[in-house]
């Protein structure tokens, strides 16, 4: 296990490096001059050159990257071209929306998907097993923002039970109001995420239900429910856990889109605005952070899978495969 951890951590470091270089290069080589964001329409060439100098985009790529890395080490992601505020503090100010949104949606999705996936597998061939399977097929096909729009229309605009969007100015100092404004967005993302997660849980649950070891447990007198608790959850977790990392990435993506439906001041709406305004430091900052988070969660998930499944780790001899 120790050997594996070292190897996997090295791989993580390598992926982080590769991804940050890739992002950096991609943002620089793609056509489109960030200096434009600083300039008024009809600016002179001299003004443009000055703007480029100010941004440092007139330096060679390698120097730019070196500088960016140095700043990154000090957690300095540069300043927004539009607001001139440090990107780090802009991001920090918005994590309070995006992190709870993503995490709550993810937890709710898992809470829906695990029992549903098991139920569909257990009730195959019955009408409501088929119905649940159909509903989750539907969930795989709906765009998350459309679900958001429909929910807003029904629960906010027609029934007026919940706010249609926005976030309290006091932030989490007003926890009740903050939670209320996150409720619809969380449900929106969770419903769509639950559909794809259900699919994985269902497939894994079928494997467990058809497994000889579950049959053995039952043949020796374990009631189905007890056998499922004891063997089923583990058996499903082993293949599903590594998928969770990718699912969490999609949840974040759902958050990016859904924040725009609900006018939430999170990373997603910041990112979309930055794209529209060609605010490159902000784009790069948010993307670097989100990629790093996803890669790190992948590392955690892979390690967790090894802890669950002894077949993946080699014992004693230390041959880490």
């Amino acid at each position: 296990m120790a050997a594996y951890l070292v190897r996997r951590a090295l791989l993580l470091a390598l992926s982080l490096a590769v991804s940050s270089v890739a992002l950096f290069v991609l943002l620089r080589v793609l056509p489109g001059d960030p200096a434009n964001a600083l300039l008024d329409v009809g600016a002179t060439a001299r003004q443009a050159a000055a703007a480029r100098h100010e941004l440092g985009t007139d330096l060679p790529l390698s120097q730019q990257f070196g500088g960016w890395l140095r700043d990154l080490a000090r957690l300095d992601l540069g300043r927004s071209l539009v607001s001139s505020l440090p990107v780090t503090s802009e991001i920090a100010g918005r994590l309070g929306v995006t992190v709870p949104l993503t995490v709550l949606a993810f937890l709710l999705a898992a809470l829906i998907a695990v029992p549903t996936g098991f139920l569909i597998a257990l009730r195959r061939g019955t009408w409501y097993g088929t119905l649940l399977a159909g509903v989750s097929q539907l969930g795989l096909a709906v765009p998350v923002f459309w679900v958001g729009m429909l929910l807003v229309t029904v629960f906010a605009l027609r029934l007026r039970w919940l706010p249609a969007g926005g976030f309290p100015a006091e932030d989490w100092a007003a926890p009740a109001a903050a939670l209320t404004s996150l409720l619809l967005p969380v449900v929106t993302i969770a419903l769509v995420m639950a559909a794809s997660l259900t699919r994985y849980v269902h497939s894994a649950a079928l494997d467990v239900l058809d497994s000889d070891y579950l049959r053995t447990a039952r043949a020796l007198g374990a009631p189905l429910r007890a056998a499922l608790w004891r063997h089923g959850l583990r058996g499903v977790a082993a293949p599903v856990v590594p998928i969770l990392a990718i699912e969490l990435a999609s949840t974040f993506l759902g958050a990016v889109v859904v924040e725009n439906v609900f006018a939430l001041p999170g990373l997603g709406s910041m990112l979309v605005r930055a794209f529209a305004q060609h605010d490159y430091p902000v784009i790069q900052g948010v993307l670097t952070l989100s990629t790093a988070t996803v890669l790190t969660i992948g590392f955690v998930a892979d390690t967790a899978q090894r802890l669950i499944d002894p077949r993946l780790r080699r014992t004693a001899a230390g041959t880490s495969a």
């Binding site: 590769v18 890739a22 990718i246 990435a249 993506l253 990016v256 989100s290 990629t291 992948g298």
Partner: peptide
């Protein structure tokens, strides 16, 4: 490929 997969399509 692992890195690219971790990088959401839409982004």
């Amino acid at each position: 490929l692992d890195v690219l997969i971790a990088f959401p399509t839409l982004l």
